[in-house]
């Protein structure tokens, strides 16, 4: 047995080496791009990799980015276990934000310990409801979830517009947004900078890991994803589990929206989803849907985001270098996977 476990350790190290190589390659190409822009490449690397840790505010900023990316990544990962692609995390996130804003604006004069759990629960439920439309379409009519979730995203954008320009509109703002939520509906800050919402990510990572990899429910989900025919023939209700996983993913993405409203913006803002959904999908795929590995990939991407922002400020490099680096990383990781497959 010792020989066997030694091999597994060796395998893991080998895999890690491969992925480090992929990341290095991505940075290498990004460096070349910086060179063509006549930038100081080494300073660029340093800025990208160290800004997050250079000061507490910068670290806090990284965590602020990390929280929605992680949670939306988890919202993608849960259905991914059953091989369903929840591209609708963006819409589910927004609906969670809508729900949170509605609770925060309408319920005033209530203590935080009542309103906060309520706000987050409503956000969760709104995300789940938004995901349940594609889920029901999948269950009853086998409508492809990739298409239906994308379409639901479009609806969500205009729904946010409608609400941000409706009765709750903040008329003093130049951008579509609602008025602020009541002060008791805002998440407390710990330390002096870190958003308490980020603690949810750790808790959900552990919970997510145990549910996906240790529970019978997660087992059945993964079995449906691995081979739906075999799972079905051995008594697993695959046609029910896959839609259910979409709803669960939607709930987590909705929670992310709620946390953004309650912990960062204190209102519903048009465009608040940023490019989180795309990043979330990439980090989830890179982590192979594993909630714990997702912590790493999401944090790494948040770091690059913050670093690239700093580069834009200090070096005048366009922020888009972050997106280029991130995309290259995904491409190189996929390349490395393909090479490893071949080198058996």
């Amino acid at each position: 047995m010792t020989a066997v476990s030694k091999t597994t350790v060796k395998d893991y190290l080998k895999a890690a080496a491969y992925y480090l190589l992929a990341i290095a390659a991505a940075f290498g190409v990004a460096g070349l791009i910086l060179l063509t822009m006549h930038q100081d490449v080494l300073l660029g690397y340093k800025t990208i990799l160290t800004t997050s840790f250079s000061s507490l505010p910068n670290f806090a900023l990284t965590i602020f980015k990390f929280t929605p990316i992680y949670l939306m990544g988890l919202g993608f990962s849960i259905p991914l276990a059953s091989r369903k692609f929840n591209v609708g995390i963006e819409g589910q996130f927004l609906l969670g934000a809508v729900g949170a804003a509605a609770v925060g604006i309408t319920l005033t004069g209530m203590p935080g310990y009542i309103i906060l759990p309520l706000l987050l629960t409503v956000a969760l439920i709104m995300g789940a409801i938004w995901a349940s439309v594609p889920a029901l379409l999948l269950y009853f009519f086998r409508v492809n979830e990739i298409i239906s979730t994308i379409l639901m995203n479009f609806i969500s954008f205009y729904l946010v517009d409608l609400i941000a320009l409706g009765p709750w509109r903040d008329v003093t703002a130049g951008h579509p947004m609602t008025i602020q939520i009541s002060s008791s509906a805002r998440l407390p800050i710990i330390g002096s900078q870190i958003n308490i919402g980020s603690l949810f990510t750790i808790a959900l990572a552990v919970l997510g890991f145990f549910i996906l990899y240790r529970s019978t429910f997660g087992y059945e989900l993964r079995a449906s994803g691995s081979n739906p025919i075999a799972a079905f023939k051995f008594g697993i209700k695959t046609s029910f589990l896959a839609p259910l996983s979409l709803v669960l993913g939607g709930a987590v993405a909705g929670l992310a929206g709620g946390l953004e409203v309650s912990g960062l913006y204190f209102r519903l803002v048009e465009g608040m989803q940023s490019n989180y959904a795309n990043l979330a999908i990439i980090v989830s795929l890179m982590a192979r849907g594993n909630p714990v590995a997702l912590l790493l990939t999401s944090f790494f991407f948040s770091m690059i985001e913050i670093g690239a922002n700093a580069m834009q400020r200090t070096m005048g490099t366009p922020y888009e270098i972050a997106l280029i680096t991130e995309s290259l990383m995904m491409l190189f990781v996929m390349t490395v996977d393909a090479i490893r497959q071949k080198r058996r």
């Binding site: 240790r214 429910f217 993964r222 075999a230 799972a231 008594g235």
Partner: peptide, 29 residues
């Protein structure tokens, strides 16, 4: 229809038995 290719040998061995008392307690394997 017989195997789960991306899952481990252990996990394949219990396909269909995942809810049996031998292999789970309170919903955890």
């Amino acid at each position: 229809d017989g195997s789960l290719p991306t899952m481990t040998l252990s996990e394949n061995i219990i396909l269909g038995f995942q809810n049996f008392e031998q292999f789970q307690r309170h919903g955890f394997l």
